[in-house]
């Protein structure tokens, strides 16, 4: 899965300088759309699109009225634009198109990178309440840099 993300980073980055800048194992291209950044970060860390495949983003953006237990609805235009951006910059992966994963924290690579004991220790030490607060431990998270562990 990690390799797929590096490939996605390379594909989106396009030029060598960019791929080198994101050349670490766990890095992804940062969000480059101001509206996506603003809307997706209103309630939680704005996860970069490479973390989920296109099918996941489409399903998620089609169900914002119940977004993990909250209404996160948007105007139609904003919703459409955000979905288009997420899909265009999505990660790759074979998923069941009828039932694509929605929670990044439940993906296999995420779990293996955040073993329960280690993640819990970090969260206690830094007083972090949610695994979704990527930037609490990964200081470059907003820039897509996650290889600091």
């Amino acid at each position: 899965m990690r390799i797929i993300f590096v490939l996605a980073a390379a594909a989106v980055g396009g030029i060598l300088a960019v791929t080198t800048a994101f050349g670490g194992d766990d890095n992804v291209p940062p969000i480059s759309d101001a509206v996506v950044q603003e809307e997706c970060s209103a309630c939680h860390f704005a996860f970069q699109p490479a973390f989920l495949p296109a099918e996941s983003w489409s399903k998620m953006m089609g169900g914002l009225e119940d977004h993990f237990g909250e209404d996160a609805s948007l105007s139609e235009t904003v919703r459409d634009n955000i979905e288009a951006y997420l899909v265009a910059n999505a990660g790759r992966g074979n998923v069941d198109p009828q039932n694509p994963p929605l929670r990044i924290t439940e993906l296999r690579w995420f779990k293996s990178e955040h073993s329960e004991r280690e993640a819990q220790r970090m969260m206690e030490r830094l007083d972090v309440k949610s695994l979704l607060s990527c930037g609490a431990c990964h200081q470059g998270a907003e820039r897509g840099i996650y290889d600091d562990d």
Binding site: S41, C43, H44, F45, F68, G69, E70, V128, K129, S130, L132, S133
Partner: peptide, 8 residues
Amino acid sequence: MGETRAGK
């Protein structure tokens, strides 16, 4: 201050 369910 408040806090979202996702910790923000």
